[in-house]
Design a protein around this nucleic acid. Structure first.
Length: 849
RNA sequence: GGGCGCAUAGCUCAGCUGGCUAGAGCGCUGCCUUCACACGGCAGAGGUCGGGGGUUCGAGCCCCUCUGCGCCCACCA
């Protein structure tokens, strides 16, 4: 217990309590707790290489509200924190920050110093460095970034147990990720395959379906005739990608299309390049699109892949991994014609091809511009191409109806907040069109833990991968050697070669429950936390993080990884514009916390309903600051009555008015509790806050004279005990939202943290809640009379005549002495309302002195 | 093309299974420097609940329909 300050203030409150909580271990997880006592949270690991923004403050506050509530309900809260630091975003940030790029052909340089640490000049040419040097810089930058994130999250008051943290690149994460994958391989849930895949030509890596997005891009239909073989005439097709004519392997129309039925099975000649292709039939061809007949290229889009596979067509690839047209013309294609586009990018090739078509009089009419959706990697700048390569996949139902149905069912085994978010999950799973591509041709990530034997010719035998044993994990197959082999057998015929690909970041972050819970690490933690109680996350990553986590848990544990999914909404700019960057004064999360105070910013976050997109509002933060201030001031006032200490005596609360207040408080406790149980923290706050202001503005004003002792000791004791009981409840009801102000005020009369205190329960004293409304109504009418007369609220009143119906009249009688004191009233008469209408007042002010 | 969400005061939003006169905060207007709080308090003005139908004793809430905004998904000829 500390002394109540004369002038309570919110300034500097955060630093003090953050230190206190840390040294007291207030939020430390009890590792001896049994599963039933535990509330486990699968915290989203933020991408540390990204910038901090108010969205972090927003959604992480929501999780913390639930954590604090559950802790006060007596649950042992498992609330870890992770950092998502592996993967492409980190690589990109390292390149931009240090002015380097990874070139695996470079030798390692001991003690390498990058040319820059932050902000290389725009003209700077990135310096190529070795993969190990590059990874060292990744580690260095990630460590810096994580410090900044941790500082913000601590300042935000997150009740995280910081001893339970992980990073998706750390040894435990690599071990868990590799172990889970190897088990997938052993059970046949993961497999490798040489196949056409979506490919980003700038990052030079394969991309999964979940990471693709459509962007509208201008294009143009080009009408091109294909001469028929062995008969007169030509077939006209429309294409937006004339540069792929060299890759054309067939034409295709719908089998029911009468225009083309006579042509099925006949041959046509591809313009410019001369290869002969067949006219085929397939249901995916759309008669109403273009001319109703399309050219199939390997590969222009994913439909081409389907046609190629199902119609068993030739492969005539022309786009390489670097996105350029291959140097050599494919089989059957006129080499001289092809040489005009060899080595160019697709957009350059298109210009060349269209010129040739025009010069030779082949193109029919003018190209017709259109706007059409084009597939992009969500982090990429140029359209995805389709390139054939060997990749690893994990089955996710995209190629199997049974698994797909099972994963849809998993969605029904958890409760979604808000409920309609489940539609997005169903939508996504049901729309999958391939298994989950987990391998990436990148550098900073968890290595795929496999080697391949090399045959006598030095060719890898991909179907017979060599796996390490689980006790060897984590490994890096590019430096580690499989059991029974020696380092000098690496890359030698008859020897082995290491897998060079790494996992996509989602392949590891899909295992956050296993990583945070120390799955198979032998310390018994996992059994205490899995399946988790809550997965909080943004609705934008349902198709990635949420779905992939469900998939991994389904394969490994045959269970859902958690029972409740809580989805956060987005932050919108008040002007519906880009968040303030253009306005010069960038809004940084830390700046907001410093300007308004943490509690105020948390209040704004807390007032947003779960899953609802919310306007960024500094006004709301001001309101929050006001509320936090009020908590301090009313606490000081209430605790100023009577003895110090936390003792209250409910038995001494005897006045009907006081019992009525506690009855109202009981209702609010019940409402807030059930709202929190349904993850609706915003409703809990709204109900609590409204009642708290009513308590401060009306109830306290009404009874404070009595509390001072003007009506005797018994009456005073009733008021002061009721005030203290209510104060203790309000402080605890508000504690999840305003952890700092409530802790401060609580400390004035308690020895232990409010955040370890028990969630309030209804007093059950049986007061009549309806009693106070008529009393407060009279108080308001008296205040109005004074306000309209433009006199001080302290001004004396000679006579108040209240007209009220029976019930209201009785209530007002119960509050008579408090009303007289609060309103400075000499005579208060209550008369029955003649028409049973609302309470009215005739107020006669005392003459001014 | 399929799916989902939103539309209530000038602004941001509550209004949970239909039920007294539709609420809050901000903003606005007026007043009060009252012994917890001027980072304050008191009071006031302000709404045909997006349009149109329907069910019902009764609709902001349920049904149909239209309009506008936003999001998710879909094979890019």
């Amino acid at each position: 217990m500390t002394k109540i300050p004369d002038k309570p203030t919110l300034d500097g409150i955060e630093a003090r309590w953050i230190d206190q909580w840390e040294s007291d271990g207030t939020y430390r997880f009890d590792t001896s707790a049994v599963r039933d006592q535990v509330f486990a949270i699968d915290t989203p690991p933020p991408t540390v290489s990204g910038s901090l923004h108010v969205g972090h403050v927003f959604s992480y506050t929501h999780t913390d509200l639930i954590a604090r509530y559950q802790r006060m309900r007596g649950r042992k809260v498992f609330y870890p924190m992770g950092w998502d630091d592996n993967g492409l975003p980190t690589e990109r940030r390292v390149q931009n920050y240090f002015g380097v790029r990874c070139d695996p052909s470079q030798p390692y340089e001991d003690g390498f110093q990058p040319p820059f640490r932050g902000d290389p000049p725009k003209k700077h040419q990135a310096i190529p460095i070795s993969r190990p040097n590059f990874l060292e810089l990744c580690d260095e930058l990630v460590e810096m970034d994580e410090k900044v994130f941790e500082e913000l999250f601590r300042r935000l008051g997150l009740s995280v147990d910081w001893t339970q943290h992980y990073a998706t690149i750390d040894a435990r994460s690599r071990r868990v990720s590799q172990r889970a994958f190897l088990r997938n391989v052993a059970r046949g849930e993961a497999y490798s395959q040489e196949a056409p895949t979506m490919w980003d030509i700038d990052f030079r890596t394969a991309v999964a379906q979940a990471e693709m997005e459509d962007r509208d891009r201008p294009g143009a239909y080009h009408k091109i005739p294909f001469q028929r073989v062995g008969s007169e005439g030509a077939i006209e097709i429309d294409t937006t990608r004339p540069e792929l004519l060299a890759a054309c392997v067939a034409l295709v129309a719908h089998p029911d299309d009468e225009r083309y039925q006579p042509l099925f099975g006949t041959q046509v000649v591809v313009p410019l390049y001369g290869q002969t292709v067949e006219v085929c039939a397939h249901e995916l061809a759309q008669p109403d699109k273009g001319t109703g007949i399309a050219m199939i290229c390997t590969f222009g889009d994913s439909t081409d892949v389907t046609w190629w596979r199902e119609l068993d067509l030739d492969l005539r690839a022309i786009i390489g991994r670097d996105g350029r047209m291959l140097a050599e013309a494919p089989a059957g294609v006129d080499a001289e014609a092809y040489s005009a586009i060899a080595g160019t990018y697709p957009n350059q090739a298109q210009r060349v091809v269209v010129e040739q078509l025009v010069e030779q009089g082949i193109l029919v009419g003018e190209p017709r511009p259109i706007e059409h959706p084009v597939k992009f990697y969500e982090k990429g700048d140029r359209p995805l191409e389709i390139v054939t390569s060997r990749q690893w996949y994990i089955r996710n139902g995209g190629r199997g109806a049974d698994l797909r149905a099972a994963l849809v069912d998993r969605g029904t085994e958890m409760t979604w907040y808000p409920g309609h978010m489940q539609h997005r999950y169903d939508n996504w799973v049901e729309g999958l069109n391939g298994d989950w591509l987990v391998s990436r041709q990148r550098f900073f990530g968890v290595p795929i833990p496999l080697w391949y034997p090399l045959d006598a010719n030095g060719e890898p035998m991909y179907d017979e991968p060599i796996a390490p044993s689980e006790d060897q994990l984590p490994i890096d197959p590019s430096t580690d050697v499989p059991d029974g082999s020696t380092a000098d057998q690496r890359d030698q015929p008859g020897g082995f070669t290491g897998e060079t690909d790494i996992f996509d970041t989602w392949a590891t972050s899909s295992l956050t429950p296993q990583i945070a819970g120390h799955w198979e690490e032998g310390d018994g933690l996992f059994e205490r936390v899995f399946p988790y109680d809550m997965r909080p996350q943004g609705h934008d990553i349902i198709r990635t993080w949420l779905f992939s986590t469900v998939t991994r848990a389904h394969h490994e544990h045959d269970e859902v990884p958690w029972t409740n999914a809580a989805l956060s909404g987005w932050i919108l700019d008040p002007d519906r514009k880009k968040m303030s960057k253009s306005k010069g004064n960038v809004v940084t999360p830390m700046g907001l916390l410093e300007q308004y105070g943490t509690d105020a910013v948390r209040y704004w976050s807390s007032s947003a309903r779960p899953g609802v997109d919310t306007t960024f509002s500094e006004e709301q933060m001001k309101v929050g600051r006001k509320l936090a201030n009020k908590v301090l001031n009313v606490s000081k006032f209430v605790l100023g009555f009577g003895d110090a200490g936390d003792a209250t005596d409910a038995a001494r609360v005897t006045e009907p008015v006081d019992l009525a207040m506690l009855a109202r408080l009981d209702s609010v406790i019940a409402e807030a509790t059930s709202a929190f149980d349904a993850y609706d923290y915003a409703r809990a706050l709204e109900r609590t806050e409204a009642t708290f202001w009513w308590f401060c503005d009306d109830y306290v004003e009404l009874v404070k004279n009595r509390a001072y002792g003007t009506l005797g000791d018994e009456a005073a004791a009733s008021a002061t005990n009721a005030l203290r009981i209510a104060l203790g409840s309000f402080q605890r009801l508000l504690a999840p939202f305003l952890p700092f102000a409530t802790e401060e005020a609580w400390s004035w009369w308690h020895d232990h943290s409010i955040h370890a205190a028990e969630w309030p329960t209804p007093s059950g004293l049986g007061g009549d809640e309806s009693l106070l409304d008529p009393v407060v109504e009279v108080l308001t009418l008296v205040r109005r009379a004074k306000s309209e007369a433009k006199v001080s609220q302290r001004a004396a009143v000679d006579q108040v005549t209240v007209s009220a119906a029976d019930g209201a009249g009785a209530a007002i009688e119960a509050g008579r002495s408090d009303l007289i004191a609060a309103g400075t009233i000499s005579t208060l008469d209550v008369v029955p309302a003649t028409d049973g209408g609302p309470v009215t007042c005739d107020v006669v002010l005392a003459p001014a002195d």
